[in-house]
Measured scan of single mutants.
Amino acid sequence: MQNSHSGVNQLGGVFVNGRPLPDSTRQKIVELAHSGARPCDISRILQVSNGCVSKILGRYYETGSIRPRAIGGSKPRVATPEVVSKIAQYKRECPSIFAWEIRDRLLSEGVCTNDNIPSVSSINRVLRNLASEKQQMGADGMYDKLRMLNGQTGSWGTRPGWYPGTSVPGQPTQDGCQQQEGGGENTNSISSNGEDSDEAQMRLQLKRKLQRNRTSFTQEQIEALEKEFERTHYPDVFARERLAAKIDLPEARIQVWFSNRRAKWRREEKLRNQRRQASNTPSHIPISSSFSTSVYQPIPQPTTPVSSFTSGSMLGRTDTALTNTYSALPPMPSFTMANNLPMQPPVPSQTSSYSCMLPTSPSVNGRSYDTYTPPHMQTHMNSQPMGTSGTTSTGLISPGVSVPVQVPGSEPDMSQYWPRLQ
């Protein structure tokens, strides 16, 4: 039975679970980093996980050691009161100082060594604690504590007292930064006198190289990059290397530039699409467009005044059976039934097929058609009795279509119309 579990990581490298990497692998990681390889490249070359490479390099940059820390136990506290007071002093002298600059000053002034120097995250935590204590304490208590930490007896009751030896409130920041720059020169002199001055200088240079600022491109470089971006948004590694040799930039910087440029292009394309949609959409909808001609068919113009009344309900007709019959029939052209047409008796099958359309009241044959006459024609229609054979009435077949029909004066039988409509 094995005491430890061995495995293979996602890159194909072998590791022992819970145990640190061998010293030979750690040394190779540092050597590759000094030669300029990126952590992701080191991870692929040595088949070590990216997190492990970053952790080893980060500890090497901070402490200069590649040895693993002790497994188990607690780390001794490195942010001692003396170190905290120095950090507060540096922050007062130059409020814009960075944590890694404070760390360098602690090393250069001999406050800490490589073994007990606090990390950048520890210094940031100390600065946050100082800021929170400043908010919790009152103004007087804060000034007393700062005077105690600074070891001075001057008056701290006013704002300019934060910067000793100065009279203009805006000047101390520059003086403090100048003092810090002077301390940086002392850093070089002190570290050069040490035993491991060369190694420390190499480590600091490598650290500065990794902690780079934003790349500033010249106009020629920007023009070359934009020209390549117009050709393709995704250049391959050969195109990037050719462009890197042409404009004297690292291939990694060119790759990052193209990634950022593609993101910018997507944002601009989104804005262009929004403007295009806004320009195509009308600002207001016309009133006429809300009524579609496919839904509402136009009603033909009436030929006679009587045809303006298109349904039985508008003429005072309360018989719903006839109203439904007229509205359900398709529109037909106007025609006239003459008196000489043969009077065919209704076929029983045809009569039964339209039995649902006729009223059940037996008085329908005896009703006159003056009910369908509009009010303004009552006088004219009353002067001509319906009993004469020459009287013409208008029957409504569908809305908007008038059918003048000659009705025999002897017997106005409704059943004569249905064979004609089939």
Rank of each mutant, 00 (worst) to 15 (best):
Q2I: 07
Q2A: 13
Q2G: 09
Q2D: 10
N3C: 14
N3L: 11
S4N: 12
S4L: 11
S6Y: 05
S6N: 13
G7K: 05
G7V: 14
N9T: 02
Q10W: 03
Q10D: 04
L11M: 11
L11F: 12
G12W: 00
G13M: 02
V14I: 09
V14K: 06
V14N: 11
F15W: 05
F15H: 04
V16M: 06
V16L: 09
V16Y: 06
N17V: 00
N17C: 05
G18R: 00
G18V: 02
G18K: 00
G18C: 00
R19H: 05
R19P: 01
R19T: 06
P20R: 02
L21F: 03
P22Y: 04
D23L: 06
D23F: 06
D23S: 06
S24Q: 10
S24H: 08
R26K: 02
R26Y: 03
R26E: 02
R26F: 01
R26G: 00
Q27W: 10
Q27S: 14
Q27H: 15
K28E: 14
K28A: 10
V30P: 03
V30F: 04
V30I: 12
L32T: 02
L32M: 09
L32D: 02
H34P: 00
S35C: 08
S35A: 14
G36R: 15
A37G: 04
A37V: 06
A37W: 12
A37C: 07
R38D: 01
R38V: 03
R38I: 03
R38Y: 06
P39Y: 15
P39R: 15
C40D: 02
D41R: 14
D41Q: 06
D41T: 14
D41C: 06
D41I: 14
I42P: 00
I42E: 02
I42S: 01
S43W: 01
S43A: 09
S43P: 01
R44Q: 09
R44T: 07
R44S: 07
I45R: 10
L46Q: 04
L46F: 01
Q47K: 03
Q47P: 03
Q47E: 04
V48M: 00
S49V: 03
S49Q: 03
S49G: 00
S49R: 00
N50D: 03
N50V: 15
G51P: 04
C52H: 05
V53R: 04
V53M: 02
S54K: 15
K55E: 00
I56R: 01
L57F: 00
G58E: 06
G58L: 15
R59W: 04
Y60C: 04
Y60V: 01
Y61S: 15
E62I: 13
E62T: 15
E62K: 10
T63D: 15
T63S: 13
T63Y: 04
S65I: 10
S65P: 01
S65E: 13
I66S: 08
I66E: 02
R67G: 14
R67Q: 12
P68Y: 01
P68I: 01
R69T: 06
R69S: 07
G72L: 00
G72W: 02
G72Q: 00
G72N: 00
G73M: 00
G73P: 00
S74M: 01
K75L: 08
P76Q: 02
P76G: 04
R77P: 02
R77S: 08
V78R: 11
V78K: 05
V78T: 04
V78G: 02
A79D: 00
A79P: 03
A79C: 00
A79M: 09
T80A: 04
T80E: 02
T80H: 05
P81K: 11
E82L: 09
E82I: 07
V83L: 04
V84W: 05
S85G: 14
S85I: 14
I87L: 15
Y90S: 13
Y90H: 08
R92F: 10
R92V: 08
E93V: 12
E93S: 14
E93F: 10
C94N: 07
C94E: 13
C94W: 13
P95R: 06
P95Q: 07
P95A: 15
S96N: 14
I97G: 08
I97K: 06
F98C: 13
A99K: 04
W100N: 06
E101R: 13
I102C: 03
I102P: 00
R103T: 03
R103H: 12
R103L: 07
D104E: 07
D104V: 13
D104A: 11
D104R: 13
D104K: 14
R105S: 12
L106T: 03
L106A: 08
L106Y: 04
L107A: 07
S108W: 08
G110V: 13
V111R: 14
V111T: 14
V111F: 08
C112N: 07
C112K: 07
C112P: 07
N114I: 10
D115S: 08
I117S: 13
P118G: 08
P118S: 05
S119G: 00
S119L: 00
S121M: 04
S121F: 00
S121N: 15
N124I: 03
V126A: 11
V126T: 15
V126C: 14
V126Y: 06
L127W: 04
L127G: 13
R128E: 04
R128F: 02
N129T: 11
N129K: 06
N129L: 06
L130I: 13
L130E: 15
A131D: 07
A131Q: 08
A131G: 12
A131N: 05
S132E: 07
S132R: 08
S132C: 10
S132K: 06
E133H: 12
K134T: 11
Q135M: 14
Q136N: 07
Q136I: 09
M137C: 07
M137T: 12
M137P: 13
M137W: 12
G138S: 10
A139H: 09
A139F: 11
A139P: 08
D140L: 12
D140P: 13
G141C: 14
G141A: 09
M142I: 12
Y143F: 12
K145S: 08
L146P: 10
L146K: 10
R147H: 13
M148V: 09
M148D: 08
L149F: 11
L149C: 04
L149H: 12
N150L: 04
N150S: 08
